[in-house]
C-alpha cells in the first residue's frame, strides 16, 4: 500500500444541479436517477420510498440516497434520488423487488446515505417485512444486534397505484438506523 485514501468531505447543500439535475429540474442531463427498472425488467414492480430524519426528528430536505440491488437475473440496478424535490422531503425509487443473491442472503437493497452535515457517507441496507424466512437466514442481518434489526426492515403497503415499501432512515436517536462499516 503506497497511497493513503483521499478523505471524504460533505456533499453539502447544493449537489442537486450536479448529481440529481433532472429530478430537481435543472438544465443538465442526469447520469442516473430514481427510476431503476425499465418496462422489460423482470420482477415485481415496487416503489421504495421514505424520509431521512435528523437527531431532532426533523425530515432532512437535502439528503441524497443511492441504491444498488440485484434483479431476478442477478443484474445490478442502480439509482439516485435527492430528498429536496418535494415538500414532504421524501425519496422515491421505482424499481423491482430484488432477488436473493445467495443461500445466506435475503432480498435486499444496498443504500448509500449522504447529506449536508455528513462528512462521510454511510452505508445501510433495506430488507423486506414480507421476507421473514429469508431474513432469518441472512448473514449480514445476523451480525446486527437483534434489537436494532427492525431499523433495516421496509414495510410493505399495497396501494392502488402498486406495491410500496416504506423505509425511513433515522440518523440518530433511539431508533437510529443501523449503518455498516463497509
Amino acid at each position: 500500500m503506497k497511497y493513503g485514501q483521499t478523505p471524504s468531505q460533505t456533499v453539502g447543500p447544493y449537489f442537486a444541479y450536479g448529481l440529481t439535475p433532472e429530478q430537481y429540474g435543472y438544465p443538465f442531463r442526469a447520469a442516473c436517477g430514481p427510476v431503476l427498472a425499465e418496462a422489460r425488467t423482470p420482477g415485481e414492480p415496487i416503489v421504495l420510498t421514505g424520509r431521512v430524519y435528523d437527531g431532532d426528528g426533523k425530515p432532512v430536505d437535502d439528503a441524497m440516497i443511492e441504491i444498488l440491488h440485484a434483479d431476478t437475473r442477478r443484474k445490478y440496478l442502480f439509482g439516485r434520488c435527492g430528498t429536496g424535490a418535494d415538500r414532504e422531503c421524501t425519496f422515491r425509487f421505482e424499481t423491482v423487488k430484488p432477488a436473493s443473491t445467495g443461500p445466506r442472503s435475503a432480498p435486499h437493497i444496498d443504500v448509500i446515505v449522504m447529506m449536508r452535515g455528513m462528512l462521510s457517507h454511510a452505508f445501510t441496507r433495506v430488507y423486506f417485512d414480507d421476507e421473514q424466512e429469508a431474513n432469518a437466514r441472512d448473514e449480514v442481518l445476523a451480525d446486527v444486534p437483534a434489537e436494532r434489526r427492525g431499523t433495516l426492515i421496509a414495510r410493505r403497503e399495497e396501494l392502488p397505484g402498486g406495491m410500496v415499501y416504506r423505509f425511513d432512515i433515522r440518523m440518530q436517536g433511539r431508533d437510529e438506523t443501523v449503518f455498516f462499516d463497509l
Binding site: G102, S105, M115, R116, M118, M171, F180
Partner: peptide, 30 residues
C-alpha cells in the same frame, strides 16, 4: 484518513452524523 461523523466545529454534523458504532459486514458486500 477520514473525518468523524460528528465533528462539532461543523455544526450540522451534531444532529446528522450517526452516533452508534458501525456494524461490521462480511466480505460479500465489499
Amino acid at each position: 484518513t477520514q473525518p468523524a461523523y460528528v465533528y462539532p466545529p461543523y455544526k450540522s454534523t451534531v444532529k446528522r452524523g450517526p452516533t452508534q458504532p458501525l456494524v461490521p459486514v462480511k466480505r460479500a458486500l465489499e
